[in-house]
Amino acid sequence: MSRKKLKILLLSLLPLLLLGFLAFRAFENSAAYYYTISEVQANGVSEQKLRVKGQLVPDSVIYDASIPLLGFSLTDGDAHIQASYRGVLPDNFNHSEEVIIEGTLNSQGELLVSKLMLQCPSKYEGEE
């Protein structure tokens, strides 16, 4: 390999290494692990941040606007999970069928939601 080629190779490695370093540093505390609701109930995951997807159980929604605190439960057909979210009730919450939540489990097996994801209106096509 000629010297010039070696120089180019080393120069192109530099951005890659820098990017790798930045990505590695950013990875901490920002990863959320996907679990199904049945898995959460079976093994009782703790500590790490999880992400759960499920159907909203009808009539499970309680909302106290004065705190504000939103409680609801999700199901994947087999198991249920209770979740609570400290925040304002989003407009399209009751309308959503599928809800994705991110957060940590407390000792009662309740998911303390830090991020609540609902279908945006543009997704409503195909809901028929």
Partner: peptide, 18 residues
């Protein structure tokens, strides 16, 4: 075996220096 999602803090920490 497990799907992992990265949240906004990842993107912020990665992109701000760049």
């Amino acid at each position: 075996a497990r799907e992992v999602v990265l949240d906004a803090s990842f993107f912020n920490q990665l992109s701000v220096p760049l």
